[in-house]
């Protein structure tokens, strides 16, 4: 197993290189660019633009810029933001806790509810409950996430005034956990909608498949309680395919967070990415894109490893 993991990790190194190259070149050819903000400013002189170009290192050919960036990246620096000149890792680091909070709660929410709904609707196949869950999960999978966000803001924010719809805390007030969690509720549910819907479908399908198997019938025949059958036998085996989906959903949440954070003004990494993209802040754009891509690769490896751990029939050599 250890050798398998090491091999997978080694194999992903060239992949990461490929990704950095593509991302770097794409980012540096994005239209607009970092100077766009200066071009509509009072009396920008050609000299000033020239100095800016040199300061930001944009005067060199892109491949030279890439190798300089790579050299620094290997030593743990992703350059400095074009905005205030802070190191990119510090800029991103500021936003990671917010994104982790949103993603973590959304993930926990969708997993918990997905298992609850999935198992129950599998056990009570074709019941009213099963129908409702099925309809809701199709709805959740088909709902454009930003439209859901807008609807939720319209309903809970603008109409009912139940919950705050922006930011992580009430402006001008000292931090309080309750306040923070109240702000979390709407974006958490919106972000979780898709994964929750998808996962409950998977859990349900997986459970249905397992329940029909011989060993479950045997277990039942042995006189085990229904709870024991479900938990000990059915669930364990049903878990195997679901785990893969869960790991991949974590990757989905990363991109879903971009939309959710923008709609709900959640000060996380996704919104930072969107803002930096609009401002042509290349170092931050590249930094986030590379980090996220690496995370996605790691999650993929994790999915395969978990699969192997859970399913004794699979052997990796």
């Amino acid at each position: 197993m250890a050798t398998y993991i090491v091999r997978r990790l080694l194999l992903s190194i060239p992949l990461v290189f490929g990704i950095t190259i593509v991302i770097f070149f794409l980012a540096h050819h994005l239209p607009g660019g970092p100077l766009a903000m200066y071009l509509n400013t009072a009396s920008v002189t050609p000299e000033q633009l020239q100095h800016l170009t040199v300061q930001l290192g944009l005067d060199k050919p892109v491949y030279v810029q890439y190798f300089e960036w790579l050299g620094k990246a290997i030593h743990g620096s992703l350059g400095n933001s074009f905005g205030d000149g802070r190191p990119v890792l510090a800029v991103i680091g500021d936003r990671i806790p917010a994104t982790l909070e949103l993603m973590g709660f959304s993930f926990a929410l969708s997993v918990t509810l997905a298992f609850a709904f999935g198992i129950l609707s599998a056990l009570r196949r074709d019941s009213l409950f099963d129908y409702v869950v099925t309809v809701l999960s199709y709805a959740g999978m088909s709902m454009p996430i930003f439209w859901l966000g807008i609807l939720v803001i319209m309903l809970f924010g603008a109409q009912l005034h139940w919950l705050p719809t922006a930011g992580m805390a009430t402006p001008g007030q000292p931090f309080s956990l309750v306040d923070n969690l109240r702000h979390l509720i709407l974006p958490m549910f919106v972000l979780a909608a898709f994964t929750l819907a998808q996962e409950s479908r998977y859990v349900r399908a997986s459970m249905l498949e397992v329940i029909g198997q011989d060993y479950i019938r045997t277990a039942r025949a042995k006189g085990l309680t229904e709870g024991a059958v479900v938990i000990k036998h059915a669930l364990r085996n049903a878990l195997i395919p679901v785990v893969t989906v869960l790991t991949l959903d974590a990757a989905y949440l990363l991109s879903g967070a971009l939309v959710t954070e923008t709609v709900f003004a959640w000060p996380g990494m996704g919104r930072l990415f969107y803002d930096s993209l609009r401002e042509g802040n290349y170092p931050v754009v590249v930094g986030i894109a590379v980090l996220v891509s690496i995370l996605v690769i790691l999650l993929n490896i994790l999915a395969d490893v978990l699969y192997a751990v859970l399913d004794p029939r699979i052997k990796y050599n």
Binding site: I153, T262, V263, A265
Partner: peptide, 20 residues
């Protein structure tokens, strides 16, 4: 406090509530 609120609809509801 200069509150960063990228979505104008959220500013709209916040100012109506008096939090901005």
């Amino acid at each position: 406090v200069f509150q960063i609120m990228p979505d104008q609809n959220t500013i709209l509801s916040s100012i109506q509530a008096g939090s901005v």
